[in-house]
Design a protein around this nucleic acid. Structure first.
Lengths: 117, 117
DNA sequence: CGGAATCCTCTGCGATACTG
DNA sequence: CAGTATCGCAGAGGATTCCG
């Protein structure tokens, strides 16, 4: 049976369905920073992600029109991922989210916490 | 054992941990639109949410410094929720996310889909 | 009115092994 | 290299009942 993403109740939900989840945000972020990334490069950047989750997340992003997947018919195989026009529009927003988060983290880091990356 | 929110790997993750999840986005959005909402008003707006999830999500948002919780010592009880300075900074971003989503939805609605709210 | 307490289901995600 | 295929679990989220 096909997995149906349950209907969003409103636009806010629709947006979060597309950028939420454990890795989506970072994948989009890395793809923007590097413009084009191969599967293995993404895997290295995402440090510790399993092939299952990476593949699954990339396929979902692709279905949502958030990434382009370009397959080169070579041996060994080569697949490149990049942002689409839709996800590119999102980058400035994700960047602002990141800056907001940075400010929050700094405000709390007086007590010692530190967050890498 | 206390539930520890696992450390964010980067600022992008930190942000999504605070606004992700099934209801957080809409709760923040509604709180902004109405400025102040009582527990029951939120419950009505969120249509179908259980008391468990609403209470739990509100408590997490409170711990994260994303909402204020004001208890009135009356009978019957009265509790009001509102945004904090931290979450207020997020509103313009959420609004842009919403507008982005609207554009995506319209682009797909040629095929008939419709999303309320 | 604004929850708390249980119990239960489902699924996001991880670990591991295999492949064209 | 870029995946696919299984198995398994913890935790997100739901349904229901009770309470000051």
């Amino acid at each position: 049976m096909k997995k149906e993403k349950n209907q969003a109740y409103c636009a806010v939900d629709f947006a979060f369905q597309r950028i939420g989840g454990k890795y989506r945000g970072r994948i989009l972020w890395y793809l923007n920073a590097h413009k084009v990334l191969r599967y293995g490069e993404l895997k290295r950047l995402l440090q510790g992600i399993t092939t299952k989750m990476l593949t699954q997340t990339l396929r979902e992003l692709e279905q949502d029109g958030m990434v382009n997947r370009k397959v080169y018919l070579e041996v060994p195989p080569k697949v490149e991922y990049s942002l689409t026009s839709a996800s590119l529009e999102l980058i400035p927003l994700i960047n602002e989210l990141r800056e907001w988060a940075d400010r929050q983290i700094i405000a709390r880091t007086i007590s010692g916490e530190k967050i890498p990356c």
